[in-house]
C-alpha cells in the first residue's frame, strides 16, 4: 500500500472542487491512459481572479489528491499568482508524496496552467509568468 500522508488521504477521500464548469472560461486537459492519469481543469475568471476552479481526474489516489489540492490552492488567486503554483508547492502542501507518485503532482499544475493558457489565448492577453505550451503528460516522475 502506498504510504500516503494524512493530507493526501483527506483530499482523496473528500476531494474539493470535483466536477465540470459548463460555461468555463478556460479548459486544460493533460495526461494519457498509458502513464495512468488524466486530468481536466475548468476555470472561471472574474476581474483577473480565478473565481471558480473545478476538475475531473482519472487516476490513482495521489492524482485525485493533487487535483483537489491544486484546485484549492488556485481558487481565489489572481491569474499571475495562479501560474506560480508549481508541482513541488502542491506536493509540499500535501505533506509529501511517495517518490513514484511525483509525476502526479506535475499533472495538476500542468492542467491548471493549460486551462489558464486556454483562457489567455481566447482573450488574446498575456499573463506574466505563464509558460509556453510544451508536451504535457510526458514527464514520467522522478
Amino acid at each position: 500500500m502506498p504510504m500516503y500522508s494524512g493530507k493526501v488521504m483527506d483530499h482523496f477521500m473528500n476531494p474539493r472542487n470535483v466536477g465540470e464548469i459548463k460555461d468555463a472560461d478556460g479548459i486544460g486537459e493533460v495526461g494519457n491512459p498509458v502513464c495512468g492519469d488524466m486530468m481536466t481543469f475548468f476555470i472561471k475568471v472574474k476581474d483577473n481572479r480565478l473565481e471558480d476552479v473545478k476538475f475531473q481526474t482519472f487516476g490513482c489516489g495521489a492524482a485525485v489528491a493533487v487535483s483537489s489540492m491544486t484546485s484549492e490552492m488556485a481558487k481565489g488567486k489572481t491569474l499571475e499568482e495562479a501560474v506560480k503554483i508549481t508541482p513541488s508547492l502542491v506536493a509540499q502542501e500535501l505533506e509529501g508524496l511517495p517518490k513514484n507518485k511525483y509525476h502526479c503532482s506535475n499533472l495538476g499544475a500542468q492542467a491548471l496552467q493549460k486551462a489558464i493558457r486556454d483562457y489567455a489565448q481566447k482573450k488574446g492577453i498575456t499573463i506574466e509568468g505563464l509558460e509556453e505550451e510544451k508536451g504535457e503528460g510526458d514527464e514520467e516522475g522522478e
Binding site: 500500500m1 502506498p2 477521500m13 485525485v64
Partner: peptide, 13 residues
C-alpha cells in the same frame, strides 16, 4: 473509466 489504485483505497476504507 476508473483506475485500480483508487478503487483499492476506497475498498480498504
Amino acid at each position: 473509466f476508473i483506475e485500480g489504485e483508487a478503487m483499492l483505497l476506497l475498498l480498504n476504507s
